[in-house]
Design a protein around this nucleic acid. Sequence first.
DNA 1: CTTTTTATGGCTCCTGGTGCTATAGTTCTT
DNA 2: AAGAACTATAGCACCAGGAGCCATAAAAAG
Lengths: 106, 106
Amino acid sequence: MTTKVNEEIDRALLELVKDGLVTGASADKITLRILGESTPPKPAPLSPDEIRALRERENVSQAVLARHLNVTVGYVSKIERGAKRPSGSALAMLHLIKRKGIAALA
Amino acid sequence: MTTKVNEEIDRALLELVKDGLVTGASADKITLRILGESTPPKPAPLSPDEIRALRERENVSQAVLARHLNVTVGYVSKIERGAKRPSGSALAMLHLIKRKGIAALA
DNA sequence: CTTTTTATGGCTCCTGGTGCTATAGTTCTT
DNA sequence: AAGAACTATAGCACCAGGAGCCATAAAAAG
């Protein structure tokens, strides 16, 4: 896309990206190749108990958590009982909350 | 669950929560009732073009975005072409990125 | 030029997640 | 005290979100 303009600078910027010192914005497109090992790993599955513990740690009701995840209350109830297992983005968000707290989604 | 201990302090803390001055942790459980209008609204659907524009704004490849959302590359490709429409947590995360940037998910 | 990665496209298939409904316990309001 | 409103659980039918697979083309890396 961007035609090679000033390769030196570009390379330097990409170095920073690679090191996680810079998040993106400038330089060329960030690809998997560039990020390499520093790409977010596939989030591990969370047990029903872990999910409930997580929610209680954040001190929110199922309804509030549901809104943040953009899912239904019934679904939250189910994943806490083990009737359903979250995957995909739902799982990603739970991990996000686990790491940074619900406040991070505000 | 928690038996009313020192209602005065509790009430005061909940006031702070209600005002968004405090995020949780202490006080009683945060419920929808308490949050009221300050609850995250249902995210509006994003058009294929908006999604692609968003990704390009963040300068990441489909593969990188996919990892962040914890979905497959194929799926990202599809929602950018309109072959599938994201909903639930996937949509929530896209809005998150739109608001705070991909860096917020790190 | 060769290899790797990105992006698209299509097909099948499974289950995540919805919607609805009902019940019971809590906590507010009057 | 009774009632309204919210929380949490539960079950069931149903749809489409998203996975997995394979193939193709094009761009970037080496």
